[in-house]
Design a protein around this nucleic acid. Structure first.
Lengths: 211, 211
DNA sequence: CCGTATTCTCTACAACTATAGAAAATAAAG
DNA sequence: CTTTATTTTCTATAGTTGTAGAGAATACGG
């Protein structure tokens, strides 16, 4: 048996190098999973259908994800990570209300792509209800979000942009639940409807903070 | 064949009366469905399991609900109706901020029973993503909620309890999404944790309206 | 071209599910 | 008790799904 990395193979220590980068293949499969769920819903996202979407036959996913649960857990985790990376990019160098706005705008389902993400995160939540591991993934991410939003609130308060007597933890919690609820609203809106007033709602909330 | 109502049977026009009140039986089955989903999750809520929970054998649901989808649709609709009735009871005779608070307190998952309801509505949302009929049920109910909340906001504005420059539709939308998001937060909280700061968040929001 | 390690396809299978429907059990009227 | 309409159980069936694994196909070094 030969289990060397591609790099080691190039160095010539293994007679037959691996062709496929397993890590990248896993990402491709996660992408196919994502597309399948968005297109058909999680209940129709069978291993066969996902493999087909990825351009393979039935059993081809096996070497990369031993079980379906492995695939789904990895896929959900990846979406979470990507969202958090996007948030980090967008809010980099910002602070206070500006950062808070950027944060929320990035999370809110304001375009088709993020509405699709809402259609994926809801099945995840449903699975998490009876899967403590998945629920944990959710809570950890939300804890991060709360921390980030609290920091931006504190900055905004220091600069005088936030003056309300309502305490920061309550504000951060409100905002978080608003962001989560917006996913529901968007995912269940009529097909193709992207304007749901979410931006006005966000601006309204930020306005309330300064009063 | 004899298809008379129990009332007619009592009047004696039918030799053999129906024993079971079909409408009531349907409600019992809906209750069993509710309990099964709350206990095992929707993915394990099979017809067999639901029948067992109701105290029957496998095929006993057939005469009352021809298909599983009929059962689930009816069950979900019933939860919606019951919630709306509860809201109507609680807010009866109230107006303005008081009514708005009662409304939200009734919807928020503040105790075990309503946390269980959150664990049922999330699977409903997931199904609604790929079932326009169910999505419609959701949107219609939310439209009602928006109307009720808007009315209470208008009353509160008239009495001077709401003074913010932010427009009512934005406020009602914020509040609705907050209520929806709270269902997610509660359903995925660690087992047995009922204190999530939701009450403080609600009070905080209502405070913001008056500034 | 050959040999070998890897990758993928395809068939098979066991478990599970919704549903159908025959047959048994039940309950009340006569 | 008998009869009849109703209700419930139980068995059967067709379809789907995740998973396993043999074998074909592939790609590369020599």
């Amino acid at each position: 048996m030969c289990h060397k990395s591609p790099t080691q193979n190039i160095l010539g220590s293994c007679p037959v190098p691996k062709i496929v980068d397993h890590d990248q293949r896993r990402l491709e499969l996660v992408d196919a999973t994502w597309r399948t769920i968005a297109r058909l819903g999680i209940e129709s996202a069978t291993m066969r259908e996902i493999a087909l979407e990825a351009g393979f036959a039935n059993g081809a996913l096996k070497p990369y994800f031993p079980t379906k649960d492995d695939l789904l857990t990895f896929a959900f985790g990846h979406v979470f990570n990507r969202t958090n990376e996007r948030i980090a990019e967008v809010t980099a160098g910002q602070s206070g209300l500006v950062a808070l706005r950027s944060f929320c705008v990035e999370v809110l389902p304001l375009d088709e792509e993020r509405i699709n993400e809402a259609r994926i995160v809801i099945p995840f939540w449903q699975k998490a209800i009876n899967d403590p591991g998945k629920a944990r993934i959710h809570r950890d991410s939300m804890q991060q979000w709360i921390a980030a939003m609290s920091q931006h609130l504190a900055e905004a308060r220091q600069s005088g942009a936030v003056t309300t007597a309502v305490a920061d933890p309550a504000l951060a919690g409100q905002l978080l639940n608003f962001l989560l609820g917006a996913q529901i609203t968007a995912a269940l809106a009529p097909e193709g409807q992207v304007e749901l007033g979410l931006n006005e709602q966000l601006e309204g909330f930020l306005t309330l903070l300064g009063t």
